[in-house]
Write a protein that binds this DNA or RNA. Structure first.
Lengths: 212, 212, 212, 212
DNA sequence: GATGAATGAGCATTCATTCAT
DNA sequence: CATGAATGAATGCTCATTCAT
């Protein structure tokens, strides 16, 4: 199962075997029952671990959610930065980011679903500090890449807050629909269209902004 | 408070006063604490009602969630169908739908947040039957409007499943960001750009589809 | 059983029947197993009540301890103030207080044992505020009585902090020994001696103080 | 810190260093949190030792309590017997015992507090056998000293069970009050008065007993 | 209809103790 | 002797739901 594969990238080595097994079991429970409805007993049962081991490794139930959330986010980010290194232009970079997102969602649909599901929990919990710090760090890296692009002035007149929605909106929306089963066709089948819509939205809006 | 205003449209009359008060209190609790973390006691406290009254009017906790969810969806749908009656073209209709969505989100941000938050609960609960039936009904109405449009062949080569994401994706994404506080500028400030992006995505993709 | 009798004075009426039953069961468990070692389950079992009822009436385990502690203290105080009203002199008053203490300990040995056992718990818990306030109130009443005594100057040269130990020390020590089973003879058998020792200690010390 | 000093008398040598460190840490935890509320983890943390080491040296948690309790009692007893060797009369001996007690309490207030706190635990635990044996042994030594006194007939008409309370009651009561913070003046400030009260109580009661 | 006391199954979490290294 | 990861029974407490008044 590819879920294991992702976890091995974040928690590697034989010593973390139990940790990975617990996380895997937890995620499956979370997705099937919902996070709140999942009991530690269910996780323990599925992971064939002891209650004590779960608390030893993850402190408490929220720690379990946070570990999964942060692992997924880190992996998604690692993939994005990797493809970005081979981008030859702004447009190419944006497309590569979009496609990396689509690929990751298709490869790890469970983690993708979990990210959406755990959003609320992470916003509240005691781990949001760590999450925020990581987000800021990652944003910096992306901004740094943008600043290197020769065509960067293309986006200068576009509010940054709007940009993200214009670029990712359609893709994220379709991925969400696919993950929830509302649509059946793989997101990757619409790769070209989604990338085109993203690029077009930026260019189009550039002229709108200037016109105003 | 405009939350009350929405509820009065769905549950009107003096006899439903307690019902509305309970729903209002419930929604506030749900948003502050999360749905699962909200206890009936909290709702009772806030609504200044009795436990018995809550159970009498809404059967159980899920009934509370469902009542709110269905009320919000109904109200959103009512607004959409109203503006659609004055649409003079396909493009105008799409823009009107988008703008109606943006207006509704800005006017009832609590209900909008609640809809996103309750999504998972409604998918599971015993009320999904009722929800599905309503969704089908509403979809029919929208399809009927589409069928009346002279330019309808414009969308014919576009997969229906993709269409929704192309049209609503960016707008929904930005509204979500605004509701969660990630961005500060009101969605309505970007009305024009979001509508332009939606329309462009459809046209652009039409040519891409045909080209393939 | 006379334990019930004391509780009926503090929690009276038919509506408090369950409350009294729970308190009684709790105290018996506390004395047999120790406060920390007593589980709510044990209390529930003995009181033939439900867990919910215990938490409904006493908030939590500490609330159970506090209710018993404050009830015992109140009853002890009520008895003391009653006998004090008939005191004809300072010496008579001191004797009456001592004897009331001895009588109370012999009549409610369980509550007396509990008071000693719960001392540490009450010092920490969230109920010490209430306890302190009651103690201050009671002290005032006692001071007021003292101030009325014609022979009050007899004690004026004696530090108040020492006075209590000189008067009550021997009696409390013997009562403790009796309650713990270390001695068998009833404290009331030594009423005369203990009162004599208390009075003598005060007079004797008065001269010592003046001599210094 | 003088706590270490007492422990070095009972557990001496370099080999017992870890043992002493653990006992010290345990006692501080016990006093701050209460015995039941103290976890082995807290002790381990404070002693900078390992869980295994604690179990190796003291068998289990009760062993920790017992080791401290017996060490404190032994030390207190050693001091008492030492001063008793220089007593020149019954009255002098009683005064010396009282003063040794006061000195010990002032010098080792933590151990004194611990003795009061652990009383209940030692009554139950599996170490009471050892405790009882030691108590009997020590009592014999004290009785032997009493038997040597020329004025011993002075106490003959006084019940032994009452004697202890008459002699120690006031002093113990005041020391307890000082240890708990209820009074601020050092017990040693009232040495003379407390000793006088003790001696007087015996003489006075002698006549009372005879009179009856 | 309205009330809120009572129920009790179910849960997160703790912690003394063991034992392989 | 020392270590600390692993165990799992046990506990305090919550909360949706019922029902007698």
């Amino acid at each position: 199962m590819s879920n294991r594969e992702l976890l091995e990238r974040i928690y590697n080595g034989r010593r973390a075997e139990l940790k990975r097994e617990i996380l895997l079991a937890a995620m499956q429970c979370f997705l099937e029952q919902g996070i709140e409805a999942t009991t530690i007993e269910m996780v323990r049962d599925r992971a064939e671990a002891s209650v004590g081991a779960i608390y030893h490794h993850f402190k408490n139930k929220d720690g379990l959610v946070a570990a999964l959330y942060l692992a997924a986010l880190q992996d998604q980010y690692d993939g994005r930065m990797q493809v970005l290194q081979h981008a030859v232009s702004l447009q190419d970079g944006i497309q590569k980011i979009l496609w990396a997102y689509i690929d990751w969602v298709e490869r790890y649909p469970d983690f993708a679903r979990f990210l959406y599901a755990a959003n609320f929990n992470m916003r509240q919990g005691s781990f949001q500090a760590e999450l925020n710090q990581q987000n800021i760090q990652r944003n910096k890296a992306l901004q740094a890449w943008l600043a290197e692009q020769p065509e960067k002035q293309l986006l200068e007149h576009l509010p940054k807050e709007l940009m993200l929605s214009l670029v990712m909106g359609a893709t994220e929306s379709y991925c969400r629909a696919w993950l929830s089963g509302k649509v059946k066709t793989l997101p990757s089948q619409y790769k070209v269209q989604l990338a085109a819509a993203a690029w077009q939205a930026l260019n189009l809006n550039k002229s709108l902004m200037i016109a105003e």
